[in-house]
């Protein structure tokens, strides 16, 4: 099912949570809403689910406006960060809940409900835990129960609000891989909210980067990382050194030193340049590039990390596989950026 948001505006008192937001998720697509806290990503998800209502704008499922429909009539599967399982019900009762509350004439027979529950529990690899209570499960298991519960009613779309937010790093990674497999077998249009860029880039078909209630960029993980549309996206995704620069005649100058081979998309004037740590070459002092003083060199496995100070005192962190030998703190170097992304300030 295609899910689309059209010109959504939402205020909480004086705070603008969403300011004219539009997007579309294609059938079977896995979309990530990525942004810092307060960027409006959870609000947008909750508006899609019908748990919040927009001040203006509309939500459409396959082109049909569902904006005024309450949650229970939208057939969305919603997975909460803190699971929101029913604690007094067993795992199997939790999963079957959505089927048992259907109107009497649509409700499957108890035998069919139980068969469906078994099927879902084996999908989430918890087939043997059906008669446990949620309190007897680990966090990762609880979240899988929550997912099975959401899938039981054959939802039109699956919405996940920071689904791995409450889990520790190891479980998070396993569950992420597993969720991608589940999504691939189900082909269900899914939207998930996260503030973890790694999660978004790893899982999603397309990433929606949000900030201050607006969408900064919607693109594939590769595109948002390598071709960020704005300074915010560039800064938010991955580590990048942020340096003041001037843009003149289509070239970037950092501290008065012209950087060759860059094609800034910005117009002339003051700007900010973003250079990722691995996108520098190290050269001897006096070469064209950014002159720096080495402050610290650390080796972590195959990589060496260099902390350098520019002439203006800005810190540059860079990594390289083969640093020049015999470098000591205080040494003068030149850093030659291979790739610069510059935006007007």
């Amino acid at each position: 099912m295609t899910v689309s948001a059209h010109n959504i505006v939402k205020h909480f008192g004086a705070f603008t949570a969403l300011n004219d937001v539009s997007l579309e998720a294609q059938p079977g697509e896995f979309l990530a809403l990525l942004g810092p806290s307060g960027s409006g990503k959870t609000t947008l998800l909750r508006i899609m689910a019908g748990l919040e209502f927009p001040d203006s704008g509309s939500i459409r499922f396959d082109g049909v406006d569902v904006s005024t429909r309450p949650t229970r009539e939208r057939a969305v599967g919603f997975v909460f960060q803190h699971y929101a399982l029913f604690r007094h019900m067993t795992v199997a009762e939790n999963v079957g809940f959505g089927l048992t509350v259907k109107p009497r004439n649509e409700r499957p027979t108890p035998a069919r409900i139980s068969a469906r529950v078994d099927e879902l529990l084996s999908l989430v690899q918890l087939g043997h835990l059906g008669d446990r209570y949620p309190s007897q499960l680990s966090g990762g298991q609880r979240q899988r129960v929550a997912l099975a519960r959401a899938l039981a009613v054959n939802p039109n779309i699956l919405l996940l609000d920071e689904p791995f937010g409450a889990l520790d790093a190891k479980v998070r990674k396993d569950l992420r891989r597993w969720l991608r497999e589940v999504h691939q077998t189900m082909k269900l249009t899914s939207v998930f909210v996260t503030h973890d860029q790694e999660e978004a880039l790893d899982l999603a078909d397309r990433v929606v980067v949000m900030n201050h209630g607006v969408i900064e960029q919607i693109d594939t993980p590769d595109a948002v990382y390598n071709r960020p549309a704005s300074a915010f996206v560039c800064d938010f995704l991955g580590n990048a050194n942020k340096l003041d620069c001037t843009i003149a005649n289509g070239a970037v100058e950092i501290g008065g030193h012209r950087i060759e081979n860059t094609a800034p998309p910005a117009s002339d004037g003051l700007g900010v340049a973003f250079i990722r740590p691995h996108e520098f070459d190290v050269a001897a002092a006096g070469q064209p590039g950014v002159p720096v003083t080495l402050r610290r060199l650390t080796r972590t496995g195959p990589m060496a990390a260099l902390d350098c100070l520019t002439e203006t005192g800005a810190l540059i962190e860079m990594t390289t596989i083969e640093p020049p030998t015999g470098l000591l703190p205080g040494a003068a170097l030149t850093l030659v950026p291979r790739r610069v992304r510059a935006y007007s300030a």
Binding site: A49, G50, L51, P70, T71, R72, R74, A75, V76, G77, F78, F80, H82, A84, L85, F86, F97, G98, V101, K102, A146, R149, A150, A152, V153
Partner: peptide, 13 residues
Amino acid sequence: PEVEEAAASLGAG
């Protein structure tokens, strides 16, 4: 309120 929202999203009145 989350469990209530969960119940509503599963179709419960």
